[in-house]
């Protein structure tokens, strides 16, 4: 799977001509074309954000407050205990930082676009996107960029760095690179699942509620996996792998890994989520009847 979701795949219906030329042309040209398009989308987003500067800054404050809130919750819990399972205080801080980092990167690229999909279906604007000579999933998923989220991701990195120092972690480049790669898998899983939920808007118009319901799942992703047992743990590991997305990267970073089984499981779940999400997307597109006709 390429970094840009679906960039080198073609949507089933609308791009018949585009697909032909892309197949004939060399791949780098396709990639360059998509990068040019994406650069234009970025430019649009920057312009849009700068129109409401005050609001832009206030949203960053909101996110910072909620991040601080989660950290103070952990602070209060550890006033009364030394461990959650085997997780110590600074390990959990690292976990909350990582989960915030993953969530913010996800939010920077995908969140608005996923929540907007139901709106596109409802008012029929999806028609125009289907007619564009680019992969539809690409434009739908990456149309807007949330720039403030990058700043919030940076605060998450600062918190993680502090926690790592408190834990006296000796980090090699290998550690950090593996960590980052696994975080990206986490971002990819969040995106695949939320996009999957968003595509239900092809069947029920009121999908926005479902998409926001996904927000509850982020709350699980930032809790230590050892707190869970039984059905709950199985569901949130093998069906909606929330207990893997941030726990596994942090286990790598904090040397809390017994074997390479968990990272492999995370990557495997990433592939599985991506495939299911793409399959449902294609199925949904076939189901699409424009709202305007």
């Amino acid at each position: 799977m390429s970094g840009i979701p679906g960039a080198n795949r073609q949507a089933p219906k609308p791009d018949a001509e585009g697909a032909g030329s892309a197949a004939l042309g060399p791949r780098p040209a396709t990639l360059a074309r998509y990068l040019t398009i994406y650069a234009a989308l970025w430019k649009n987003s920057v312009t849009r954000e700068m129109m409401f500067k005050g609001n832009f800054l206030l949203w960053i404050v909101v996110e910072l407050l909620w991040f601080a809130l989660q950290l103070s919750f952990i602070g209060v819990i550890y006033l009364h205990t030394n461990r959650i399972g085997t997780w110590t205080q600074w390990q959990v801080v690292l976990l909350i930082g990582a989960s915030h980092f993953i969530q913010q990167i996800y939010q920077a690229f995908f969140l608005i676009n996923c929540t907007n999909l139901s709106e596109l279906v409802r008012n029929g604007k999806l028609d125009f996107l289907l007619l564009l000579p680019v992969n539809t999933r690409f434009v739908v998923s990456l149309r807007q960029v949330d720039l403030g989220a990058f700043l919030n991701a940076a605060t998450a990195i600062a918190v993680m760095a502090y926690a790592a120092r408190q834990l006296h972690l000796v980090l090699t480049a290998g550690h950090v690179l593996t960590f980052l790669a696994l975080c990206l898998v986490g971002v990819w899983i969040h995106y695949s699942l939320m996009f999957l939920l968003a595509t239900t808007s092809f069947w029920t118009i009121r999908a926005q509620g479902i998409v926001w319901g996904y927000y509850n799942l982020f709350q699980i992703a930032r809790l230590p996996d050892e707190a869970f047992r039984g059905v709950f743990r199985a569901v949130f590991t093998f069906a909606l792998p929330m207990l893997l997305v941030s726990n596994v990267p942090v286990r790598v970073l904090a040397d809390k890994l017994d074997s390479s089984r968990l990272p492999l499981l995370l990557v495997g779940m990433g592939v599985a989520c991506g495939l299911v999400s793409e399959w449902v997307w294609r199925l949904s597109l076939r189901h699409y009847t424009s709202a305007s006709s």
Binding site: I77, H80, N216, L217, Q219, I220, L223, A227, F228, F232
Partner: peptide
């Protein structure tokens, strides 16, 4: 909303068990 509730209850159960 019950999902995060179950999650937080599990965390407390783990803390008490410890």
């Amino acid at each position: 909303g019950l999902i995060p509730l179950v999650a937080i209850l599990s965390v407390w159960q783990t803390i008490y068990a410890g």
